[in-house]
Simulated assay, not measured.
Amino acid sequence: MNIIIVGKRHGQSKTYSLGPVARFLLLTSICVLPFAMGATGYLLAAHLADKGLLDPIAAKAWEEDLDDQRQELQQIRQHADLELDGLTLRLAELQAKLLRIDALGERLIDITKINADEFDFSSVPAVGGPGTLGETYQAPEIQSVLDNLASRIDRREQQLEVLDDLLLANKIKTDTFVAGRPIKRGWMSSRYGKRTDPFNGRLAWHAGVDFAGKEGSDVIAVASGIVTWASDRYGYGKLVEINHGNGYKTRYAHGAELKVKLGDVVRKGDVVAAMGSSGRSTGPHVHFEVYKNGRTVDPAAYLHRTLR
């Protein structure tokens, strides 16, 4: 068997003669090579199959795992959004409580006449202090911080409400305390008790005190209360009667004009009438009576009375 090899140059070639052994080896290689390549491909396919690279079921399982991970991530995001919404609502509640505390604090300042510059509820309190060298900062859990803040706000709110109740009760007690003169200008012209009646000259009982003054001058309430009479009354002329609670009521008679009406709530110092001479009167004055538990008492004891 001869093998001819043609060279690059034209006309050049070489001829090789193969012996029986060489021919046998060459033929054997040609026949065996396809089988070797097929076996190699089979073994590689088997190896990839063992690794799961060529298995459709394994690929589908990967896709399912990816879908599960996407759903889990979506759930985590939704949970985080819900927690954020909850924290936002909690912060809004705390802000509302702080607004109530600020309003209550401003009211207490108004009641107690405290210097507003010392307790300015519209500004953030100034704080500070030295730090610790080498201190490692660790961020606290936000929910724990909010819970602690809410607890502190609740305690402060309760304390301020109790203080407000006490101050309000004290203010009400002060306002309803019967004391002072029923006029701004004038003088006492007749005292409480027995006296000579100016119309008939006989001895008669005078159930109040008289304060003379200028026609039309202010007649004021000596304590806060509710108007239980505001009209003409026999002998009194134009009369105002005020119930102050705790068994006390006062009367202001002979007015030229009434400044209040039945059912009005008046405060200490409010003008209730204009001084006049209506009814059984000899001139401009106010007849002032004080009742305690349904009986008249000497108003002179209440003119300079002080709250203890």
Rank of each mutant, 00 (worst) to 15 (best):
D110H: 13
K171P: 01
E141I: 11
I109G: 05
D164I: 05
Q138D: 13
Q159K: 14
D154Q: 11
L167K: 06
L167T: 05
T132M: 12
G134A: 13
F119C: 08
A116Y: 10
L104C: 08
L146K: 01
A92L: 01
I172F: 00
S122P: 03
V127T: 15
T88L: 12
A179E: 08
E141A: 11
L99W: 05
E118M: 05
N170P: 02
I183A: 01
D102R: 00
S151E: 12
T112V: 15
Q143L: 14
L167W: 10
K173H: 07
L160R: 00
Y137D: 04
A96F: 10
Q143N: 15
L163A: 09
K173T: 13
I172M: 00
A179R: 05
V127K: 14
F177V: 04
V162M: 09
F121G: 01
Q159D: 15
R107G: 11
S151L: 13
A116H: 14
A116G: 11
F177N: 03
I111L: 14
L133N: 02
L87V: 01
E161T: 09
G128M: 14
A150D: 10
L149R: 02
I142H: 02
K173I: 10
S123G: 15
L99N: 14
A139Y: 03
L108A: 07
D164S: 11
K173L: 12
R156W: 08
N115P: 03
Y137C: 03
R107E: 09
L166A: 08
I142S: 07
I109W: 03
R156Q: 13
T174E: 07
Q159T: 08
I101P: 03
K173E: 10
K173Y: 06
A179M: 12
I183R: 02
K171E: 07
P125F: 05
I153A: 09
Q95P: 01
I111T: 09
L89G: 10
I153R: 02
